[in-house]
């Protein structure tokens, strides 16, 4: 199941890459670097989420940071 999930993510990311390729060819170096770093973050995060679905995220961080405000309300 997890292998299938990871394969699906790779397929989607490849699709995004293929759709954007004609535009990327014309664009500068900075854009290419930015594009591939966002894609990299996407890939890593998606694979991590498939393997560890219960991974704590930003939501838990917000809860942790603002927990102490609760009694005031």
């Amino acid at each position: 199941m997890k292998v299938l999930g990871i394969l699906g993510i790779i397929v989607i990311l490849l699709f995004i890459f293929l759709i954007q390729r004609p535009g990327l060819k014309r664009s500068g170096k900075r854009e290419k670097i930015a594009f591939f770093s966002i894609m990299m973050v996407n890939g890593v995060l998606a694979v991590l989420l498939v393997i560890f679905p219960e991974m704590p995220g930003p939501g838990q961080m917000i809860d942790f940071l603002y927990k102490s405000f609760k009694p005031f309300w």
Binding site: I19, Q20, I38, N42
Partner: peptide
């Protein structure tokens, strides 16, 4: 324009990740 789809993917990932 090149970032619309990658960021869309990231938003969907976040929507799963941040809220259990």
């Amino acid at each position: 324009k090149p970032f619309v789809l990658p960021i869309g993917f990231l938003i969907i990932l976040f929507s799963v990740w941040t809220i259990p």
